[in-house]
Design a protein around this nucleic acid. Sequence first.
RNA 1: GGCGGAGUAGCUCAGUGGUAGAGCAGGGGACUCAUAAGCCCUUGGUCGGUGGUUCAAAUCCGCCCUCCGCUACCA
Length: 549
Amino acid sequence: MPADPLRPRFYLTTAIAYANNQPGLHTLYEVIAADVIARWHRMLGDDTRFLTGTDEHSVNIAMKAAEEGRAPRDFVDEKVALFKAAEDALSISPDRFIRTTDPDHIRASQELVRRAYANGDIYIGTYEGWYCPNEGFRNATDVQETARGTICPNHPDVPLQWLTEKNWFFKLSAYQTRLEQHFLDNPTFVQPDYRRNEMLGFIRQGLEDFSISRAGAGWGIPFPIAENGETAQREDGSWDPEAGTIYVWYDALINYVTGAGFPDDLKSFARWWPADLHVIGKDILRFHTIFWPAMLWSAGLEAPRKVWAHGWLLAAGGERMSKSRGNFLDPGDFVAAFGSDGARYVVLREVPFDKDAEVSWDGFVRRYNADLANDFGNLVNRTVSMANRYLGGERPDPSPAADADATWSWTSRVPMLQSSLDDCLLHEALGVIWSVVGDANRFVDAEKPWELAKAAKTGDEAATARLQVVLGDLVEVCRLIGLAAAPFLPETAPRVLAQLGYAWPYAADGNGGPPLLDQLRWGAHSGEKGMLTQAEPLFPRLDTETAPN
RNA sequence: GGCGGAGUAGCUCAGUGGUAGAGCAGGGGACUCAUAAGCCCUUGGUCGGUGGUUCAAAUCCGCCCUCCGCUACCA
């Protein structure tokens, strides 16, 4: 993808998934949403870079691998394959799937540590906390006080030890003032607003330094600096295990700059950084909006432009979905039932992107049937059928743009769609598109093309003309809806346009076509001849009894 | 405890002073181009409770109840 300096660029990322297990739909939810935003920007004509990936280091993963008698690398390779397969099944289109085990990421992570050191922001301190022999250090919030002492809930029989370890620390405290000012100067840096307020409150409580290394050569990136401040790399290129490994945030977060080209390709990095958007879950907000900017500043880099914290899919009763609770939805089952586009649609429509929402299989089926099968799919089907039957399949032109707005209000819908997407309110964007679907179905019943066709057959010229315009408008509305919905329904949109006799001008990932906003003008293809194809149902209706469990 | 948010029809929610709304679900009807889809009509709510301000409050103020988020090192 050649970088065109004249084209606006858009770089967005999802959080990288922890590669300790199979992926759940609640994890993919964020990736689906980000994929929609990426496709939207590609179709607009922006030079877009979309990054997804996996977080693969940690003692937990090394131990899980050991339990299975496998090498960590072998273990994560298998999990990564599952994540990639799930992304493929959902038509996710990352420009790069980054792995924290990638060599360039390891270099990036180490380079950021070096820069922090050079800037005087890291120092050796002591980290202490409850240590579970099976899982490593545990948070205070993860342990339980019992009559027999403090235990880790996952291994109640294994006594926890209070351990002290010599670690490197990052001087987050030094960035408190700058962070607060950054929040005040950039009101949309963290969105939604209530999340921003939470983070601002957190900053104002005072910031503590955090540890960025762990002792020993575990399953992680070698810490590049020895205790004496010299490089920890030996002459043969290997790393001194005494220096320890990089811990969590100086590994995981760094993927965003690695994915932009840091540090190997600084020209690319200059093109893509700072990221326009990090899409993340609310559980890691603090790390992305407080730790991360400070880490970047310490390295002389800019903070990302926007961090968006989405809500969660909640299981019945408002419980958070998780693999450990066993109440998660399997992406394979989901795609098998709803199809790739159906799956994308129902999760994005049922859950407002700025809030949590309870979801259920029945709710998804209802939503699929109501919105996709009955309203949209059937609209295209009846439109194409009628145009074929009454006009011999020759595509009719829509009414002139000046007249059309009285019926369709299309010129005001496009800005609504744009602002919803710019504000990451994906459910709202779908609401805008589907309000047109509703208008179109009502339009059919109001105009009764079948009656116009009967009258036309008897030689009624007014009816003949009206039939052309009515079906022309319907075909045009289907084209516009198909294009507007394309970022959400990338498999279906080309099928819609094909049935209307239009070629699909975009690549499979949304790149390469004409600017979407040009295509979204009413009557953009008026006067072009075209033949409709046979009407083919886009979204077969589902039985309510399709639930797998 | 502190800071913030929310309680409106069976469900999800919109509605920030002027006679209670949408979508879905439920009931009825007319039609037939269509995926027995679509369209029209309709059932349904003392707008968490209470006291106040006002000619008028879901909407403003006080108090109370319930729920949720954040309150540091898990990916």
